[in-house]
């Protein structure tokens, strides 16, 4: 079972306590954007076999949204971090690099 540490309440929450919220750090497009931008924003998702960044909610707990860095091919969790950021923090990136040198995800590496 997947266990994620909620960065707000500090609980190691099991999968049943959590609600998956999909890809993290989406850039939102508003009025005036092109069809392609809207299409990608609405339907295109990163689908990596490897390092992935996601939004999760501690639904049956403190109720807060947070971010998680995971590997989709091993279910390994690299770390969780605040929802109040537009990109993965440095310590999370370093934690991933320690185990997966050379990883990339969207524009991050």
């Amino acid at each position: 079972m997947l266990i994620l540490n909620c960065p707000y309440c500090g609980v190691d929450a099991e999968e049943t306590e959590l609600a998956a919220g999909g890809e993290a750090h989406l850039k939102r497009y508003g009025p005036g954007s092109s069809d392609d931008e809207f299409h990608d924003y609405l339907f295109m998702r990163e689908n990596p076999k490897g390092v992935h960044f996601e939004r999760w909610r501690h639904a049956n707990g403190c109720g807060k949204w947070f971010h998680a860095a995971r590997a989709t091919d091993t279910l390994e969790v690299f770390g969780t971090y605040s929802a109040q950021t537009t990109e993965p923090p440095q310590e999370i990136r370093e934690a991933i690099t320690a185990k997966r040198p050379g990883w990339t995800w969207r524009e991050f590496e």
Binding site: M1, E14, E15, K49, T72, D73, T74
Partner: peptide, 13 residues
């Protein structure tokens, strides 16, 4: 399962 996964195994719950 509700999240991306390539491991060909599901969760017990």
């Amino acid at each position: 399962d509700a999240y991306n996964n390539f491991t060909q195994r599901g969760s017990f719950h």
